[in-house]
């Protein structure tokens, strides 16, 4: 898979660059949250001026935990970088493939099934679970129908 992907370097350069950025960001985040000496102290000063001396050590530990990037920020990094990957993925598509591509991307957007599974995780008779149940059905139709239609569209090019 990788070999054939490398055969069109021009278009893939962007993807690889974006992926490097992506994992680079995750990596930096991992390193900074593991060591994180500077912001730890700064935050410690801000947070615990009153308790001052007695619990300096504890405050530092707490602050060190606080410097772990909040999930929202990790999410935003990922969101933004994947948008760049998405832009890079599709630059030149022959018009023939616009419809199958649209249909395939549509099936992929059914990934919201993961959220639906979460919502329907307990079999309890509540409104929230009922909504989750319907969400599972909708997402599943989107996925199965979407991939099938895409495959049927693409079968016709096999020649």
């Amino acid at each position: 898979m990788l070999m054939s992907a490398l055969s069109s370097p021009a278009r893939l350069r962007g993807i690889f660059a974006a992926m490097c950025l992506f994992f680079g960001a995750l990596f930096t985040y991992g390193v900074s949250s593991a060591s994180a000496p500077k912001p730890a102290k700064a935050a410690a000063k801000k947070e615990a001026p009153a308790k001052a001396k007695a619990s300096t050590k504890q405050a530092t530990v707490e602050a060190a935990q606080n410097t772990t990037l909040p999930p929202l920020m990790v999410g935003l990094y990922i969101f933004l970088l994947s948008i760049f990957v998405g832009f890079e993925l599709i630059t030149k598509v022959p018009p023939t493939l616009h419809t199958p591509l649209m249909s395939g991307a549509n099936a992929i957007s059914g990934i919201t099934i993961v959220g639906a599974l979460y919502c329907a995780r307990f079999t309890t008779p509540t409104i929230a679970k009922a909504l989750g149940f319907v969400a599972v059905i909708c997402a599943m139709i989107n996925i199965v129908g979407g991939f099938l239609v895409t495959d049927r569209l693409l079968q016709k090019f096999k020649k």
């Binding site: 999410g75 998405g86 599709i90 991307a105 957007s109 919201t112 993961v114």
Partner: peptide
Amino acid sequence: SMTGFVIGNNLLIISGSLVGASGIIL
């Protein structure tokens, strides 16, 4: 992608925004 933010799942954020971006390009 927004659902990914809601339930805190990175896979949703990634694939959702991939579709979002490629859809705009298309």
